[in-house]
Amino acid sequence: MAAPGRMRCMYIFNRNGVCLHYHVWYRPLTTLSPQQDQKLMFGLLFSLRSFTVKMDPTSNNKGHLGVPQLPGQGCSFHAFTTNTYKLSLLETPSGIKIVLVTDPGMGDLREALRYIYSNIYVEYVIKNPLYVPGEHFRCELFNAALDQYVKTLK
């Protein structure tokens, strides 16, 4: 593996928890099978979001923990940082979740995630007539454009 940049890996999920794409730049340690790994990641996002809603001090309409919410209802988080990595998340009303895992010193990636969604995912995947919506994709152009773009992120 080449010398690590600041990117670690990226996941794209749809609403049904299907991992549409998994992209890895630098990940020296992998202990789980890809399926388990992706499922845990989706579970982390899902649970963390229900906790953030429950703990929201500005809203009193919280319902009970774990009760299904309508998409876009309640608050959500866009990033968290640990001492070893930072996870940034973009969630669209259509249920697409783009997760970017980077080194912990990375700045705000909300714009970057938006760019990846609009200019890379929509352009190369959604508009690809051979892509079956809701299924895992493998797309050379997408990978090339993504690699190119993340190089510009500071």
Partner: peptide, 9 residues
């Protein structure tokens, strides 16, 4: 119907 987000697994 508006369909709520549920844990898919």
């Amino acid at each position: 119907k508006q369909v709520p987000e549920e844990y898919p697994y």
